[in-house]
Amino acid sequence: MSLALVSPALLVAGFVVIGGIGMSLVQSLGLLPLVGVPSLSLDAYLANGEELLIGTGLSLAIATASTVLSCIIGLTAAVVITQGRRTGRIVAAVSALTIPIPHLIGAAAIGLLISDAGIIPRMLGIPGTEWPDLVGGPWWVAVVLEYTWKESAFVALVVAAVLATRVARYDETAALLGAGRARRLRHVVIPLARPAVIVSAIIIFVYTFGSYEVAWLLGRPYPEPLPVLAFRLFDSITLTSRPEAAAVAVVTTAISLAVVAIGMACLRRTPLWK
């Protein structure tokens, strides 16, 4: 009975996860060529060795910056949401507003805001020629900003929910034991919010690490983050490019899973984790 209830979902998720990773691995090792004889080789990994390495570094940097910024801004927003009254409600409303906006739309909006013809240089009266290359520039500012904008709202939502339901009574207890606002924040609120922040950080890191459309729209043509590299190889017409794209996918997956493992280890070390 239980198995019957769980199996439809399990079949779909299992097919996509195990099939996706497995078939990527099989293709990347040359075992499933479009034409010709299958033969085990690491050619697909070595063909774009340098780009793969640079892409990994770039993707890690983008994901790390976005995750750290999102957690800081999101945690601040969550504290403001739960501690302030009217101000809290306003911040809660505007952050909730950004949650259902697709990332691609967010990317388009960020482009209209901070490109050299965007609204911010216009408001500041800076001519487009003197405005730094935030979109498509060397520092990937627009990409990180878009991720941080969307994901900080996500952190705020998750952490504020935890603070409001689980932490409010502890906050009162701590106050009655003589802890002022700042000390309550340090000794009670932030420690109790830590598991929620870690979980959000894992989700954000993995998402921003493997996401294509924002980096493609707001980034520059070279160097390419891993998903953009994989996409280009996948769409390319040469016969060897499919296994090469699969190789990029395998590397991306391996790093994502490693990050999840590290994150879960951090989570288990927090005293709240059962």
């Binding site: 299992g14 099939g19 078939m23 395998v250």
Partner: peptide, 23 residues
């Protein structure tokens, strides 16, 4: 079982696509 059900969160969408299009 719950690991597999949550796993799509940790799997970049393009990986699933690239593995499964051929299937």
């Amino acid at each position: 079982v719950s690991g597999i059900l949550l796993a799509p969160l940790a799997l970049p969408a393009f990986v699933a696509v690239m593995g499964l299009t051929i299937v």
